[in-house]
């Protein structure tokens, strides 16, 4: 493989990031972007299973779901939503920085994105601790004063499962953003090769999107939230 990065990329002149089995950078980039989209489709199906369960039970036990939702902390949920939307903005700006070759901005924006992610996780941890102490974790720990505790428990089972798997995705997201930030600092990405940053961005936005659905479904069922 001949490396001559100064010359305008030609089919014969390989970008060092071009893997051997691809003919051109375009092909490699198209392939990896498509791979990411297909992966996100599988993720939609993965969460789709839980959303289906949620819909079914919410239809069956609406009153209990309202009762459960009232135990959610409206403000923590709302703050977390804002945090995630901000993190998506910084992620989008990070992708742009990589495209126009601003290495410093890229690294900084990725780190801010990670920090937003950590804030989200921290708030989630506070909420989880509260729910645990309030006996809102299903199973033997569970206790609920109300006419229909059994089905409130189902609400909480779904709450823990859905937000738990979402938090797991957040955690993975924070780690891979960290990895990408490290390589960005090392100068791996630039206008010729920013595909990994873009793909991690897609993943990050997807995880945010899931939260955008979880937030109203879990926190905003009833209108009784005073604030």
């Amino acid at each position: 493989m001949s490396h001559s990065p100064a010359v305008v990329t030609h089919d014969q002149v390989h970008n060092p990031a071009l893997q051997h089995h691809f003919a051109t950078m375009e092909q490699q980039q198209e392939a990896s972007t498509m791979g990411m989209w297909v992966f996100l489709i599988t993720e939609i199906m993965f969460f789709g299973g839980m959303f289906t369960a949620y819909m079914v039970y919410r239809y069956m036990y609406y009153q209990a779901f309202v009762a459960g939702s009232e135990k959610m902390d409206f403000w923590w949920g709302t703050i977390n939503t804002v945090v995630l939307i901000c993190s998506s903005l910084t992620m989008a700006l990070a992708v742009r920085s990589s495209q126009i070759g601003q290495r410093k901005a890229l690294v900084v924006l990725l780190i801010i994105t990670m920090l937003f992610g950590c804030v989200f996780m921290g708030i989630k941890a506070i909420e989880y601790t509260g729910h645990w102490k309030e006996h809102q974790f299903p199973g033997t720990n569970f206790h609920f004063e109300g006419p229909d505790p059994q089905h409130v428990e189902i609400f909480f089972s779904l709450y823990w499962a859905m937000t738990g798997f979402h938090a797991l995705h957040m955690l993975i997201g924070i780690i891979i953003v960290g990895v990408i930030a490290f390589y960005s600092w090392r100068g791996k990405y630039g206008p010729d090769y920013y595909n990994p940053v873009e793909n991690v961005g897609l993943y990050w936005h997807f995880v945010d999107m899931v939260w955008i659905y979880l937030y109203p479904l879990l926190y905003l069922i009833s209108h009784k939230h005073g604030g």
């Binding site: 297909v38 489709i41 599988t42 993720e43 199906m45 993965f46 969460f47 789709g48 299973g49 839980m50 369960a53 974790f137 299903p138 199973g139 033997t140 428990e153 189902i154 089972s157 779904l158 823990w160 499962a161 798997f165």
Partner: peptide, 25 residues
């Protein structure tokens, strides 16, 4: 494989959560 398998994955996870933590879904 891409569309179906994730649904099985989450379904089996819910079964596992039920056994481990009594989620009872």
């Amino acid at each position: 494989q891409v569309l179906g398998t994730p649904v099985l994955a989450i379904t089996l996870m819910l079964v596992a959560l039920d056994r481990l933590f009594a989620f009872g879904i």
